[in-house]
Design a protein around this nucleic acid. Structure first.
Ligand SMILES: [Mn+2]
Ligand SMILES: [Mn+2]
Ligand SMILES: [Mn+2]
Ligand SMILES: [Mn+2]
Lengths: 222, 222
DNA sequence: AATATTTTTTAGTCTTATCTAAATTTATTT
DNA sequence: AAATAAATTTAGATAAGACTAAAAAATATT
């Protein structure tokens, strides 16, 4: 069994490792966990001694297979609980993260699989993030940032790069939800803002917003 | 916000205080929490400094109103989660306590009320223990121990004094569940064992078992 | 190549919650 | 009323996880 703190480190390192390919550095981890670099070094040593990650001083860390599989389990729990909170308790998508941060640490071999079944084996959490299954396999669709789409292309909003509450609330105000169809109508040369057309309206979003929307391209042949 | 440890102390002191009326003594708390008396003294001082209980050295402790209301909240959470685990995830009643011990410490003002509503505002947990409502009010029925019933009396099994897994499994083997009707057919003079009649069979239970079954008397006029 | 800056690690401290062993207080016997 | 036993508290230690300040290593700049 691993402590809450250990689990949080593994989870954060996993997501950082996913984003950048290189070894994950101390300061980044510290920032994501709102702690200090020295604390990170301490914990890194502990996790390294337990063979959950490999670590060369000053060279950053990389999860081992064991470390990765623990991180995936925590992520699975986090996302399933988020789904539960939204789908069954009718929370809004910007209200569930903090609660899931706590629920993800509940220890029980059977609990999460029973919850998964109860929820109908969902594939994505309320923010469009894929939920790893029992064996740690993701629903692997390659999503691209809306920023990388060209004029005329269409796709479906499937996930978010940024899931901060302030961004979630912005999307709420724009009435944008996961699974919306989106078409790129125009891209403003000056500031890279994007004119998009949803099922209901056509409006501009900033480059920063476009960057954080993950789209599943629609192949027009289907 | 209170730590898990603080919440566990308050909860245990509350239930002990309920059983015996006198101030709760150190050793009892230590035993219930599987810890040492010296640790209990330490924590007691901390809780006393926070005005959650009153404490005179060597004289045991008594919860303050604040302490009591926190204990009730924890109990409410514990029992609602147990209900969720049995009713929605289909756990058996002897499998839920350990998981609920963890879930009861999840912090969120809205979560437990939403869960309560989702579950249909249940009044009793799977072991027949009353679930305090939002304002800390119990469903107050006075239950009596089956041991105190007389020959010929009838009643309904509504709760257990002992909810240990070994007892719960015993009841499973006897096919006894909450809300069963029970009639006292005879009481053996020699060892106080009780011959009871349920809807399906008639059989003997030991005095010790009788002591731990809580019955709602059936007033025959209704 | 030498210097300056940034990143990371080490050293030492703190808090929370435990523990063991010893001292103290209260309760029970003789 | 002593003496003995039991319950409780104190004293001192330990472990996890965090922090600040200082040292060391790696990068970047002149
Ligand atoms: Mn989240
Ligand atoms: Mn999410
Ligand atoms: Mn329980
Ligand atoms: Mn219960």
């Amino acid at each position: 069994m691993y402590s809450q703190s250990e689990e949080n480190y593994l989870k954060v390192i996993f997501t950082l490792q996913k984003a950048e390919e290189a070894p994950v550095n101390t300061n980044l981890i510290a920032e994501k966990l709102s702690t200090k670099a020295s604390s990170v070094t301490d914990m890194i040593k502990k996790l390294s001694a337990k063979d959950l990650l490999s670590y060369k001083p000053y060279q950053g860390v990389k999860l081992t297979e064991t470390g990765r599989s623990i991180a995936l389990k925590v992520l699975r729990k986090h996302r399933l609980w988020e789904f539960f909170l939204v789908d069954k308790l009718h929370y809004k998508w910007d209200e569930v993260h903090e609660i899931a941060e706590q629920l993800e640490h509940v220890k029980s071999d059977s609990l999460i699989d029973k919850l998964d079944y109860f929820l109908g084996l969902p594939k994505y959490d309320p923010h469009g993030d894929p939920i790893p299954d029992k064996d740690g396999n993701f629903a692997g669709e390659e999503l691209i940032s809306l920023k990388n789409m060209e004029i005329g292309e269409r796709g479906i909003l499937k996930g978010l790069k940024d899931s901060s509450n302030v961004f979630l609330k912005y999307l709420d105000r724009k009435n944008m939800v996961i699974d919306d169809q989106i078409e790129v109508v125009d891209i403003e040369k000056f500031d890279q803002s994007v004119l998009i057309k949803t099922n209901w309206e056509t409006f501009y979003i900033s480059e920063q917003v476009a960057k954080n929307l993950l789209i599943k391209r629609m192949n027009d042949e289907l």
